[in-house]
C-alpha cells in the first residue's frame, strides 16, 4: 500500500527519523498475539513457525514501519519481545 503524503515537512531534511530494531525471543513467546493485535503500525504477524513450547511466535513483516512506541515490549506478558533504536551512525 503506497503511503500518501499530503505535505512534505519543511524540516524533513534536518530531522532524523529513528529506525527500530525489533527483537523477538521466540522460545519465550506463548503466542498470545497481543503484540500483533495492538501494534499501531501493523509491524508484526503470526508466524508459521512453532517454537520450543509449541506456540507460534510473531514475525516482523516490516521493521521500517515501526515507530518505536514500545507498546509491544510493554504489553508482552512473557518478556519475549523488545525494540531498540537502530544504531544508524553508519547509515541504515
Amino acid at each position: 500500500m503506497p503511503v500518501r503524503i499530503w505535505r512534505e515537512p519543511l524540516d524533513a531534511d534536518k530531522i532524523k527519523v529513528s529506525k527500530a530494531e525489533i527483537h523477538i525471543l521466540k522460545d519465550q513467546c506463548k503466542g498470545c498475539d497481543f503484540c500483533i493485535e495492538f501494534c499501531p503500525k501493523q509491524v508484526l504477524e503470526t508466524s508459521e513457525e512453532l517454537n520450543i513450547k509449541g506456540f507460534h511466535p510473531p514475525i516482523v513483516i516490516d521493521e521500517s514501519r515501526c515507530v518505536l512506541c514500545d507498546f509491544c515490549t510493554a504489553i508482552c506478558p512473557d518478556f519475549a519481545i523488545f525494540v531498540i533504536e537502530k544504531d544508524c551512525k553508519e547509515g541504515c
Binding site: K30, D33, F34, A74, I75, C76, P77, D78, F79
Partner: peptide, 12 residues
C-alpha cells in the same frame, strides 16, 4: 501463567 494471562503484563 497461561498464554494471554494478564499477570505477566502486571509483572511487566
Amino acid at each position: 501463567w497461561c498464554e494471554g494471562c494478564g499477570n505477566g503484563i502486571i509483572l511487566n
